[in-house]
Design a protein around this nucleic acid. Sequence first.
DNA 1: TGATGTTT
DNA 2: AAACATCA
Length: 937
Amino acid sequence: MTTKKRLFLLDAYALIFRGYYAFIKNPRINSKGMDTSAILGFTNSLLDVIKKEKPDYLAVCFDRGGSVDRVEMFPEYKANRQETPEAIRIAVPYIEQILEAMNIPAIVKEGFEADDIIGTLAKKAEKEGLETYMVTPDKDYAQLVSDSIFMYRPPRMGNGYEKWGVEEVQKKFEVERPEQVIDFLGMMGDSVDNIPGLPGVGEKTAKKFLAAYGSMEGLFENIHELKGKMKEKVEANQELGLLSKKLATIMLDVPVELEQDKLIFEQPDIEKTKAIFAELEFRRLTDNFLKTFSQESPASTSDTKPQQAQSTSGQFDLFATPGAGNAATESINGFKTVTNTSHFYQLVNTPVSRKLLLDKLMLQSSVCFDTETTGLKSLEVELIGIAFSWEEGKGYYVSFPEDQEETQQILETFRPFFEAENIEKIGHNIKYDIKVLSNYNMPVKGKLFDTMIAHYLINPDMRHNMDILSETYLNYQPVSITELIGKKGKNQLSMRTVDLDKQTEYAVEDADITLQLKNHFEKELATGKLTELFENVEIPLVSVLTNMEIEGINLNTDFLNNFSKELSSDISSLEQKIYEQADEEFNIASPKQLGPILFEKLKLVDKPKKTKTGQYSTAEDVLSSLKEHQIVSDILEYRQCKKLLSTYVDALPNELNPKTQRVHTVYAQAVAATGRLSSNNPNLQNIPIRTKRGQEVRKAFIPRDKDYTLLAADYSQIELRIIAALSEEETMIKAFQDGEDIHASTAAKVFNVALDEVTREQRSNAKTVNFGIIYGVSAFGLSNQTNLSRSEAKELINAYYETYPKLKNFIAQQVDFAREHGYVETILGRKRYLKDINSRNAIVRGAAERNAVNAPIQGSAADVIKLAMINIQKRFEKEQFKSKMLLQVHDELVFDAHNDELETIKPIIKEEMENAFKLSVPLDVEIGLGTNWLEAH
DNA sequence: TGATGTTT
DNA sequence: AAACATCA
């Protein structure tokens, strides 16, 4: 048993970066609008280490000024590092304060990197007979590992801390000695640090070389054994290889002393630390901190501290936690889990117990339920089970057999519950569950509450997975689905293969969590004044979307098949033409191959534009300017055909539902941060329309049968009308009231000509500016999109603002509002938080400012059409029309209109859309009919 | 994963 | 600007 004292050295920046990126999708923002993710991430790691390991010695090492020596060797070292994110820059001073309050020494040496400092200290500690743990996620440290030096890597998603000793390093890197990690990194290179490595050598090859030759030098001595391209490359780059190796080597001669007595870990200053945490609003962390430290008697110093962590077993057990007998009972990252939280989850699979469950259900006023199914496509899956919960920590799971008739019978038991108007149904993405039940003709009635949508309104920019919500709001980590049925992909098991106890635990836990989240979000919706939007718009919309998705749309597959043949033949003839002109065959669809041909072989242009990864850009706007070359225009046409074929013509027929033979898209109601819907599987919101060839695809969308006609209803210029109304810009409002062509009208005023003298180009430029206003203008963007120079674009914008002064005012107001409140909102109070609005980085701030203008406009337009959809659906249901709403494309609704009802529903649709929300500008809706979607426009 | 392209 | 999808 080891009795060595243990030193923990933390790599500050590596941990800070890791903490920051761990929260990147769900950043922690405190009430002052400050992004505290990086601080929280780091401090969590720090407390974790202390709590679990009780270090004898502890220090945190910082980089300052980078490595002087390495930059001297190789000026490009770390040159492609992006600028440090703001949240990290502001984090460092706070972290220094926290360390000071906790009496933890920070070690900084100007001109050296943390890994060099840690390496040097670790080696010195080894001589002093200490055991060193290098706390860092950075795998470069593996080269330092020895019998008394270990890597201690913080947990990644769901895993625990990893301790890497010699054995682990041998396994991970497939080397005999840890020092060989240097050769490995030198060969492979590192794009993050911009260590070049050997060209053409990646992880696989580097491991192979090391196994065969042992080191970089060994490889160079045996170049004769290599073959072909690889031989040439290695031969030519020996110097680069040796340099890379040097760069990857952690220095062990940093002028820093190991002052043991200063590194002894002592009691933190609890009050001081608490104060800093309070300022940062780290509530949960404070609890955790107090639990760890305040019970310890003040007399206990490092000299008398018992060696609890190691004494539990002879072997060093990383997961053993003091006080907890069994590692499995405590989650590794401080979350509660199903194993350490008391709960009562019960399986229900007998007729008697089902009846009892129903009786209980019928007594409730509000119940959460969650279905388990055989897959993801709600309209094609079978039911495996349903979990119910109406009390926190408690719930029931009804399982269903494979036999679908039996399933139907069992489900019938619960019909009174699902049809009960007076029982509120709670779910997470409840549209999915309702659709699944619809396969069994089981309608879900009564009030709905969807926790996914609730959270979407509370913070649309965050993610709304139940797992993340549970960890964030309940401090509870649910059983991971991956653990149960494996990773996504074809090897994923079905829930049916999971044994019933596990199913019960997983499914009821989900329902339980959802119920708990609901209780949480209900309050938050109220504080954010979002309850009305939630209850009167988003929730009613759930049913509308459900109906639309179940309805689907008819597709003319014969037409698409013919079109596919046509396109394919066009593609192959274009292919031949291009090969001839390039004088070689290559993959035209690969920008990586196309770039060199165009710009190296054919040298079409002097200084080709490159992408950020250094490839030649072959994007549309780049190639468009080279259209005079036959090969380029052929390539553009080739690309267009290829795109149409793969994304639409060949893909759409595969999306037919086998039962209905129709296409059922899925609308995501909680994805687009502005409040819009999005459509997927397939996406029917980006069906081509601009080009002649693309329009053909629209012809494939047809009415249900000969008794129906497709009806498309479009808002005309809804976003401009909204901006006119919100800004109260009279000139623009008047133009709309008079029914003018808004772009021509704008052109007339901006260029100071009569309305009927506006040229095509003037109108087009005015249109671009109008459009640009909606997205937030910049002179740069505008000159890119038009043939105007940067200064002409600027002039145009100025003239535009003079024409519409109130509009300029409105834009400034939005930005000011966002600066003050941290968010902007739509006409219905839908909020969008803009955490970067006060950023010191002009680019980041500019984007936030454009969002401040764009979000209320786009979002209000989304609000309006959502209201219209709800009202139309109501009317349709009341009149029991055969006609059905099928699609929504942001400002357009598409219907299967029964021919007998055509003249009845046309005015209804128009009226409901135009009057969905009263603005000071009239809304205008154009309706078209046709035997396909293109005609209906 | 990055590049490209489609829509509003 | 912001979705989704495809390809290498």
